[in-house]
Design a protein around this nucleic acid. Structure first.
Lengths: 149, 149
DNA sequence: TTTCATATATTGTATGTACAACTAAAATTA
DNA sequence: TAATTTTAGTTGTACATACAATATATGAAA
């Protein structure tokens, strides 16, 4: 039991729940935890899974395009591809000043498992939020980041 | 409206925009960038600013409560408070097995600047999203993380 | 053709965040 | 009261992510 009279609601707590920075990142942390659990069978964290999915679906895609689709910094993607290459899950080929990324047999093999993990993740959060709320929320989040970027 | 299902997209890109893990984190990255800019005058990143605001508003709040209000792991908060203490922006006092955190003069002084930065941030994203959309989105995000946690 | 400007990617460095293992203190129970 | 369990916090370690500085390759201009 909590005997602190201010435990439930401090004098000035409301700002957190109405700040988009805070609420967006809080949801990000919560769903990342969930996504990491569902992606455990792939042996990858969700972002790596999505990189592989993009590469398998667009062999030879450039790193620039990948970073843009994923909305991450190019340097972040460099590190991702480094690790995927070490594990033979994707392969770089230099093409002038761009670097193209290609699937590997091992990466292609993982495709179904990744799709399955994405599906489990969706099922799981749709059960909690309701499919319609989940869909609407993703859509609003997409619109909002498009507007803010 | 876009009638071509593959316009501006590779063969299998749609999964990103309908995945709540991805859309939530993408918005998180976008608004974090914006928040860091607006908080620059405070000399703090936004999360540190919010820790100070909570501590100033509830002197003696325990780390457990702080972590809970911020929805971050206790270990993360330990690191935050370490750094705030080094900069004399907050102060720990051990109280049995809990640790209470108190404001310092320097931390209290920063209060107004932090509130002002939060306000600028809000103004900025409301200009882009519209106040109603911004409000609704924060609310939905709050509800969703409450449900998923 | 040499030089300059631009685009792409990488590297160095720093921060936010978490989990697992550990320590210390309090609460419970025997 | 001694032993056990629970709770709060810290530390070691690891990963995602970004920015600034740098390298390399292409394209443009002289």
């Amino acid at each position: 039991m909590d005997t602190n009279p201010q435990a439930q609601q401090g004098p000035d707590d409301g700002f957190l729940d109405t700040c988009l920075f805070f609420t967006a990142n809080r949801l990000g942390r919560a769903i990342t935890r969930m996504a990491e659990e569902e992606f455990a069978p792939t042996g990858l964290t969700p972002m790596y899974g999505y990189v592989i999915r993009l590469v398998n679906g667009s062999p030879g895609i450039s790193q620039k395009e990948l970073a843009s689709k994923l909305s991450i910094a190019p340097s972040t993607l460099t590190r991702f591809i480094d690790k995927l290459e070490i594990r033979r899950l994707a392969e770089r080929r230099v093409d002038g000043k761009t670097v193209r990324v290609y699937p590997t047999p091992k990466g292609l093999e993982l495709g179904d498992t990744i799709v399955e993990a994405s599906r489990s993740l969706r099922v799981r959060y749709e059960e909690l939020l309701g499919p319609e709320m989940a869909r609407k929320l993703s859509e609003d989040l997409k619109t909002a980041s498009g507007t803010l970027e």
